[in-house]
Design a protein around this nucleic acid. Structure first.
Lengths: 335, 335
DNA sequence: ATAAAAATTTTAAACGTTTACAGAAGGAGT
DNA sequence: ACTCCTTCTGTAAACGTTTAAAATTTTTAT
């Protein structure tokens, strides 16, 4: 089908080993021969077959990146960081969207393993993912992003979720709110759990723990935020402050309230997580906890590449925890 | 390193051809042997090497998807369509972000060619891309999405950009606007050109062509929209209606105007393109031209898979042009 | 029991590379 | 002229699969 190294060799009148050497810049080759071969290869439109090369060199220069929701602008941002760093190292990235499905996550991991990717960066669907993935017994390095398990053998890049939620909650408390709800994503998500913990701890510190449950969980989607806000309204116990587990949930929450006669921030203060680009739109102006998304992606990629490089050396363990930054905009108000 | 078919063969006490057949469900194999081998392979944690298989079967089950801006929610939506369809056919997708750089586009194409992807779906950076890509002389099918060149040999999935812009412009005219500007992305983008044509044609039809140029181009980014709106303001000729080449430009335009004492839609009406999910947020409520993004991605993938299947049969040529739909929300007003 | 047919398994070649090793050609030192 | 280096090129094996063809075993029919 496509032109191979043998075809080039035939035309050039040399052995294919020589062609290989010419094309790969080996030192032990005559400069003239090399130039001639390179020229011929170019004319013939030769393109090296990375598959065949990978087979003998045992490398593929591919890594996989699993994200649960490519529609959430948080992940494209992270993906860019991963991709840019990987590319700078000559590595290509398989970006896979697990769509918040554990099943799909495992399917992708299996497929990528068969493709012999050299490493995996995973933003896991739930806490269960960590376990399932470990059971897969991959022989390649894995870096988790946005989520860690209790297992300290893992490599990860995360936000200090506890601190972030704590800070955000205290901010709301400082504004005079005493009836603050937490609208979360999956209960089984560890980042979510950590955020809930931070939120609870802040309430506790200021003696604001209520007996009624103000923590509601669903999925990390705008519709979920919308639905949960509606629940609050229907239950007749609308909080004065809401901490949402991410920006798109926050946007859904605000949407629901405004559609039902409430105003943000006049009636309800809302804080999100992530600081997606749309949060800064003047009309949105969402107060939120920022994460250095691009940098986190790049850091994860760097970590992974480093681990791939030091083959087998499992000593390299990386835990990169970034500090949260509260971005105060216009969706919170003194009470 | 990892366990191969030969390792399994050794343990099972059969030849590796037998293992291969057992694992691939060939008919000519004893049911007992098969079961035993499958069992052993599983116990040993065998995972087939898709690289080696690809080499002999001459397939990789991989395609590439090139998008210029993964941060623009339009593209994740398209990507999901592509990925879902491809996955349903057992194909994995390399998602690459060209970042609006022609150079990067070519680099990716070369890398993907070496990886022997079986096809490419490309949302090209500019009109030049089409030419450059043709020069690469890929021997694999390519489907363009969002953009077509004059070359009728191309396969593409696009919105009827002319009609879309025409419709949007007429809507603005119908609202009483007679001073309508077009804020575009790259001039060298074909979809942009088609939209400008539609816009001009509508003005012409209603005898509203101005001698001063109300078409401004930049890149397809929010910052560009912002910058161009600022230009209008600084030049002292703020239009009453604006057609933006996509939603994020529109958002940038609105942002700039609102930051400078203008109100949308009271002072200026704005229409976008794409109907990204954020356009429907009540606070944004952007009037826009909708595209069936997910379906377009899926259609492109289907087209590509079909072409890959019918190897060499170049007769299959697909032009899929979707009809625009004007979504009237709140950023336009009667004048 | 035996030949023929069917079912199963093994052998060996192929896919397109890289690379250790062997071999050849040319030059230098003696 | 001979040996010894250098420098370059060719040979062949390897990577982990699939698969046609050959070989073997089992089954069936007589």
């Amino acid at each position: 089908m496509s032109v191979t190294i043998k075809d080039v060799a035939k035309i050039a009148g040399v052995s294919y080993a020589t062609v290989s050497r010419a094309l790969n810049g080996h030192p032990e080759i005559n400069a003239n021969t090399k130039q001639r071969i390179v020229q011929i290869a170019k004319e013939m439109g030769y393109s090296p077959n990375a598959i065949a090369r990978g087979l003998v060199k045992k490398n593929t220069n591919m890594i996989g990146l699993l994200v649960p929701d490519i529609r959430n602008p948080y992940f494209p941002e992270v993906a860019r960081g991963v991709e840019d760093f990987a590319n700078s190292e000559g590595i290509n990235v398989f970006l896979c969207n697990t769509n918040w499905e554990e099943k799909k996550e495992i399917i992708y991991i299996k497929a990528l393993r068969e493709k012999r990717v050299e490493g995996l960066i995973i933003a896991p669907v739930t806490a269960v993912s960590h376990q399932r993935i470990k059971e897969e017994n991959l022989k390649i390095p894995v870096v988790y992003i946005g989520s860690k398990s209790e297992d300290d053998n893992e490599n990860f890049v995360i936000l200090d979720n506890f601190k972030a939620a704590f800070t955000a909650t205290e901010y709301l408390i400082g504004l005079g709110h005493d009836n603050i709800a937490f609208v979360g994503g999956f209960e089984s998500s560890i980042s979510n759990t950590d955020r809930v913990r931070g939120y609870r701890e802040a309430l506790k510190k200021h003696n604001l723990e209520k007996e009624i449950n103000l923590v509601k969980s669903s999925s990390f989607k705008r519709e979920s935020g919308y639905a949960i806000a509606l629940e609050f309204i229907n239950e007749g116990r609308v909080p004065s402050g809401i901490l949402a587990a991410n920006d798109i949930i926050a946007l859904g929450v605000i949407e629901a309230f405004e559609n039902n006669g409430y105003t943000v921030p006049e009636d309800i203060s809302v804080i999100g997580f992530d600081d997606i680009s749309f949060a800064s739109l003047p009309k949105i102006n969402l107060t939120t906890i920022a994460q250095p998304k691009y940098q986190m992606g790049a850091a994860a990629a760097q970590m992974l590449v480093q681990m791939i490089g030091s083959s087998g050396n499992k000593e390299i363990m990386n835990h990169y925890i970034v500090e949260p930054e509260l971005i105060i905009r216009g969706t919170c108000r003194k009470r």
